[in-house]
Amino acid sequence: MEYIIAKYNYWIYIVLMMIGFYAMIAKKNLVKKLLGLNIFQWTIILFYISTSVKKGGATIPIMDKAIDIANPALYLNPLPHVLMLTAIVVGVSTTGVALALVVLLYRRFHTLDEDEIFEKIRELK
């Protein structure tokens, strides 16, 4: 039971990550592939945030006069928060670029299905 409590968050992330992975390799529609990519990405962000958790009364990484700053066990780890804060915004921007590319593909081939796009590319050759 202790083992399950200690590790269950990693199992949840792995299940979510595999949902995204399955969507990326099995779905034919490009927008659905993109959704899978986003699920994968957010799972990794969740995983990083969960590494900053400290049990035993730790609070958010903002200095409070009432809580001793010299004791690091009383504050959460600020580093994963910093890294993921930038990763979230960059992820949103790159999703925008990916959607723009999907729009261009739709304009060119009038479909979003991967197999049909490959067929049309072969016809062009």
Partner: peptide, 14 residues
């Protein structure tokens, strides 16, 4: 910019 550009995109092939 990303929102507006994706919103006002032309549907037909130019």
């Amino acid at each position: 910019t990303i929102f507006v550009e994706l919103l006002t995109v032309k549907r037909k092939q130019s």
